[in-house]
Amino acid sequence: MARQSISLTEPNDEWLKAQVDSQEYASKSELVNDLIRQARKQQAEIDWVRTKLEKAEKSGFTSLTKEQILAEAKASING
């Protein structure tokens, strides 16, 4: 596993300590890794939406209802 040294602002460090102290996480490293996983997942979802929007803009109009479009989008996200 790669090791990194990072500098945190005091409020961010205090927040990390509070999360560990509340036993939400076992260590700051575990928490930081979880935050990064969440950010990566969020970015993947944003990229997916962006790709869909770009494709939709290029394809023109659709005959699908908004409910059908929403159902299709949810199905694609949930795999």
Rank of each mutant, 00 (worst) to 15 (best):
N33T: 01
A18C: 02
E45P: 03
N12E: 14
R37G: 07
A26Q: 10
N33C: 10
L16K: 12
S29D: 12
D34H: 04
K41N: 04
Q42S: 05
Y25G: 00
E30R: 00
K41E: 12
E45D: 11
Q43M: 03
D13Y: 15
R40W: 01
Q38T: 05
S29Q: 12
N33E: 11
E30S: 12
R37E: 13
K41M: 06
E45S: 10
Q23V: 07
D21T: 04
Q23P: 08
Q19V: 13
S29I: 03
A39S: 04
S27R: 00
P11I: 05
A39F: 09
A26Y: 05
V32A: 11
P11L: 11
E14N: 11
I36C: 03
K41V: 07
R40E: 14
D34P: 00
S27P: 14
S27T: 15
A44D: 14
L16P: 14
Q42A: 09
A18K: 10
A39Y: 00
E24C: 03
L35P: 07
L31R: 10
Q42Y: 03
L35R: 01
Y25H: 14
D34M: 01
K28Q: 06
A44Y: 11
A39Q: 04
Q19H: 14
R40F: 02
K41P: 04
L16C: 15
E14M: 13
N33L: 07
Q43W: 02
K17N: 02
S29C: 03
Q23K: 12
W15L: 13
E30C: 06
W15E: 14
L16Q: 08
V20E: 09
L31W: 09
Q23D: 09
L16M: 15
R37V: 10
I36H: 08
L31D: 00
D13F: 15
L31G: 12
E14S: 05
Q43F: 11
L16F: 08
S22P: 01
L35A: 08
Q38I: 10
L35C: 14
D21E: 06
N33S: 01
Q19K: 15
L16S: 12
E24G: 09
R40A: 03
L16N: 10
E45H: 04
D34E: 02
E30Q: 10
W15I: 09
E30T: 00
L31M: 13
A39T: 05
N33F: 05
I36D: 08
Q19M: 15
K28T: 12
D21A: 05
D21L: 09
A39N: 08
E30M: 09
D21C: 02
R37A: 14
Q23I: 03
S27V: 07
W15R: 15
E45L: 00
S27Q: 13
Q19F: 10
P11F: 08
E14Q: 12
V20A: 09
E30N: 05
A26W: 03
S29P: 00
E14F: 04
Y25C: 06
A18G: 14
L31S: 02
Q38K: 05
